[in-house]
Every structure is written in C-alpha cells, then in structure tokens.
C-alpha cells in the first residue's frame, strides 16, 4: 500500500515486458495502478480517471513502452502532467487597492483565522505593509478573542465589534477605520461555513458584494478527501474566489485535494500553511506538491 508509485509501475511494466507483447490494454492496466495511487492520495476519483486517460494518450504518443525503463518514464510523464495541472506561474497576492481588501473563506476549522494572522505577518515583514485584521466571525465561541491573540503575537491591529451581529456592517466599518488610520491592507477573517448552509453562504456573498475585495481566498485543509471538489466548486460558484490556500501541510497527508480543487475551479494555489506558528507560511510549488502526491 505504501510502495512508491514508481516501484509499482516498474513492477507492473516489468511484468508486461516479460510477456514480450505490450499492447494498449496493458497500458490501461498500468494506469489503473496510477489511478489507485492517486485515489489513495485523496485525488477525487473522477478527476483521477480523467487524468489517467490524458496520460494514456501521451504515453502511447511518446512510445513509453519501447523505452528501457518504461516505469521511470511513465512516472516522469505522470509527474510532469500533475505539475502542469497544478502549476503555471507562482502567483502572489493582488495588492492593487488602497487599502487592498482580502477576504477569507472556507469550511470550519480549515485554518482561516491562523492564516489571516500569517498573511498579515508576512505582508508586514516582507512587504512593509500596514495590515488591519478584521474579526467577522460572530459565531464561533471566542473567535474574536482568538484573532486578538493572533494580532498581539504579530503586532498587528485587530478591528472587532463584539456584540455586533452584522458582518457586512463590521467589515464596512473596518475598511473606514483602515482608511482613517493609514492601513493599506485589510484582511477579513470570516466564520467557517459548510457549502450546503444556504444562509451562511448568502452571508459571505453579501460581505463579498459589499466590500468588493481585491483578493478572495479559499482556505482548505490539505487532509481533505473526496469532498474537496464539492466544497471548492460551491464556494467558487458563490464567490468566484481568486486563489486557494492549502493548510496543515506540515503533516504527512499526500494532499491529493490540491489536484481535485485545481481541476474543478482552475484557480491558483497561492500559499501553503506549514505549522501553527505565525511564520509557518510558504508559497506554493507545484512540482513539490506533485512529488508529495506521488509519494516521491
């Protein structure tokens, strides 16, 4: 089960070569291994299927099977294809506005509040910005306190209005406050919500419409399984978000959700979270992620 994919493919293709007769059917059999490995890494099964048929075309086109080490070449093909799928240019955060407004979104517990802090810290230290953190989670017990503690840790001001039950009003007031006090970035932390929760999806849609953020980010736990596609699609349908943040990559998850999400919404993965501390943030490298998914 934990054999690396490369070993598996080498074995599978070795067997095939032994038969002396390599056909399209045999390739399909091999790609079944790839598909299983991807599903084991939490890539959505439908996307894994699509992906392997693309790889199949390429493999046949490139004459993989005539190669001396067909397993290695096949793995390279798979890896390159994965990298390309997740990749392109490394895209930063759009900071064009004054203030630039960044809205966080995502499921419960995905890491929005922590990432809000990390991003504020990053922009403050690396981009000499003056961020304002805004507490718009009016539901979770002690969510506002949590953001205040985070703000204190990194020396960034936090705007909150305890008791105010209207996140649209809070975010608008925060932006006014930012303008008055020379904050050039406003990062709005929101409550976690399920995509099927209509009232909560309407709430974030209303916040989005009212503040017109330069950057709307979808924060997702890298341990997410097959459901990642549903959630990403639903949030994207509501918010047309600009980028994805993958959190908790300091664990040992393979992180196949990255591929599922990219395939479904075609938005760049901008940053990753690699720990609980405020400096545990990194830009996203597609090729590293491909290695990780393939267990290499």
């Amino acid at each position: 089960m934990f054999d690396s994919l490369s070993d598996k493919l080498d074995k599978a293709l070795h067997v095939l070569k032994g038969h002396g007769q390599i056909t399209e059917v045999n390739v399909a059999e091999t790609l079944k291994e790839v598909r299983r490995a991807l599903v084991d890494a939490d890539v959505n099964y439908k996307i894994a299927k699509e992906f392997t048929s693309t790889v199949k075309e390429k493999a046949l086109g490139q004459g993989v099977l005539k190669d001396l080490k067909p397993g290695q070449l096949m793995v390279k093909l798979v890896k390159d294809e994965l990298t390309e799928l997740m990749g392109g240019e490394v895209e930063g955060i759009n900071l064009s506005g004054n203030p630039s407004i960044i809205l966080m979104s995502g499921l419960q517990g995905s890491g929005k509040t922590t990432f809000s802090g990390k991003l504020a810290n990053f922009l403050k230290n690396k981009k000499t910005k003056k961020p304002l953190l805004v507490a718009c989670d009016i539901y979770r017990p002690a969510a506002i306190n949590q953001l205040h503690v985070v703000g204190e840790q990194i020396g960034v001001e936090v705007f909150s209005d305890e008791g105010n039950q209207d996140p649209v009003a809070i975010s608008k007031a925060a932006i006014a406050h930012a303008k008055q006090n020379g904050h050039n970035v406003v990062i709005i932390d929101t409550a976690g919500r399920l995509a099927v929760d209509e009232a909560m999806m309407t709430e974030i849609s209303n916040i989005h419409k009212a503040i017109q953020p330069q950057e709307t980010l979808f924060v997702v736990d890298s341990m997410t399984g097959q459901d990642a596609v549903n959630t990403a699609k639903a949030f994207n349908d509501t918010l047309n978000f600009d980028g994805v943040i993958l959190t908790k990559l300091d664990g040992d998850t393979r992180g196949g959700a990255a591929i599922s999400i990219k395939s479904v919404v075609d938005k760049p993965i901008k940053f990753i979270g690699t720990g609980e501390k405020m400096d545990a943030i990194d830009v996203f490298y597609p090729s590293r992620m491909a290695d990780r998914i393939l267990g290499m």
Partner: peptide
Amino acid sequence: LDGSTGQNAFE
C-alpha cells in the same frame, strides 16, 4: 476525526 478528511485519517 473530521468527516471531510481523506485517507490521512488512517495515519
């Protein structure tokens, strides 16, 4: 365990 977690829940 978070119900939306995939195979990492095994580890």
